[in-house]
C-alpha cells in the first residue's frame, strides 16, 4: 500500500496561550497518530512537546485528544481516518497545559495520596495470608489500569466543572478505592471518606470513563456502581441497617 497524506492540526502553546498549527505529513500503512506526531517533530517542528514512552499502550503516557476524543495516540491507527483528512490533536483538556501536547497531571497524584492504604487483617496462625481465586477475580480487573488518566480527563465532573477538583477523586481513584474495598483481606472502611470527601455522589454514571478506557476496565459497572451500592447500604437503606444489626455483619 502506498503512503497517504494527512494534515495534522496540532495545538501549539503553553500556559500563556497558544494556537493550532497545521502540518502535512506522509503516513505509511500501520502508522499510529503518535508516529505521525513524531514525523512532524522530526521533519517540521523539532520543538514540538509530546509525552510518550512505551508506544505499546501500556505506559499511559501519550494520552491526548484526537478529533476531540480522548485517546492514547500510540493506539490510534491512522487508518481510522480517511486519507487527506485533517486530524486535530490537542492536549488533555482537564489538566493544566505545560506545553503543546504535554499536560500537568499531578492532580491525579494528589488524589492518589489521599487513598487510605491497604490494611490487611492479621495473618493466619501459620504466618501466611490465604485467599481464594474467586475472591480476587474482580479486583484483578482493576489492576489492569495503566494510569493514562483518560478517564479522569473525560469525566465531566472535573472537566466541565473544575471547582469540583477540590473534592472529587475521579474514576481512576474510584477504581483504586474499589480494589481496596472489595479486597478479601482488607479491613479498612472507606465509605464515609468516599461519600463525604471524595465526591462519589457527584458521579452521575454517564460512563464516559468506561468508554475511553484503553484497558477496557468496566469502571462504572464494576467499580463505581458497586461503591455507590455500598454507600447505599451504609447510609440510605434502613432495612439493610436493621439486617446488619440483627445478623451482626458489617
Amino acid at each position: 500500500m502506498a503512503a497517504s497524506e494527512y494534515t495534522m492540526r496540532i495545538w501549539r502553546g503553553d500556559a500563556s496561550g497558544g494556537a493550532f498549527c497545521d502540518y502535512r505529513v506522509s503516513v505509511e500503512p500501520g502508522m499510529v497518530v503518535l508516529d505521525a506526531i513524531h514525523r512532524v517533530q522530526a521533519t517540521q517542528a523539532n520543538d514540538l512537546a509530546v509525552r510518550w514512552n512505551c508506544k505499546a499502550g501500556k505506559c499511559g503516557s501519550c494520552s491526548a485528544e484526537v478529533n476531540g476524543r480522548p485517546r492514547l495516540t500510540c493506539m490510534t491507527r491512522m487508518e481510522l481516518f480517511p486519507p487527506g483528512e485533517t486530524i486535530t490533536v490537542t492536549p488533555m483538556r482537564t489538566f493544566p497545559l505545560i506545553r503543546d501536547l504535554v499536560t500537568d497531571v499531578s492532580f491525579n497524584f494528589g488524589t492518589a495520596k489521599q487513598v487510605p492504604p491497604f490494611q490487611p487483617k492479621p495473618k493466619e496462625p501459620d504466618g501466611t495470608y490465604r485467599m481464594q481465586q474467586e475472591d480476587i477475580d474482580r479486583v484483578q480487573e482493576f489492576h489492569k489500569c495503566i494510569e493514562c488518566f483518560l478517564c479522569q480527563n473525560v469525566c465531566h465532573v472535573i472537566r466541565d466543572h473544575p471547582e469540583h477538583k477540590k473534592h472529587f477523586a475521579g474514576p481512576r481513584m474510584f477504581v483504586r478505592y474499589a480494589a481496596l474495598e472489595m479486597h478479601p483481606l482488607d479491613t479498612d472502611n472507606r465509605l464515609e471518606l468516599l461519600k463525604e470527601k471524595m465526591g462519589l455522589e457527584l458521579c452521575n454514571i454517564t460512563k464516559c470513563c468506561t468508554e475511553v478506557c484503553p484497558e477496557s476496565i468496566h469502571i462504572t459497572d464494576n467499580a463505581i456502581i458497586p461503591l455507590k451500592e455500598r454507600v447505599v447500604d451504609a447510609y440510605y437503606d434502613p432495612l439493610a441497617r436493621v439486617f446488619r444489626k440483627l445478623t451482626g455483619t458489617r
Partner: peptide
C-alpha cells in the same frame, strides 16, 4: 440514569462534549 442524564439533561450530552449547565451537583 446514564441515558437521560446524557439525552435530556445534557450533563454531558456525550463524552468530551461540554455540559450545558455551568453548575453541577451530581446526585
Amino acid at each position: 440514569r446514564k441515558a437521560y442524564y446524557r439525552s435530556f439533561w445534557w450533563a454531558p450530552p456525550a463524552c468530551a462534549v461540554p455540559d450545558v449547565r455551568t453548575g453541577y451537583s451530581g446526585e
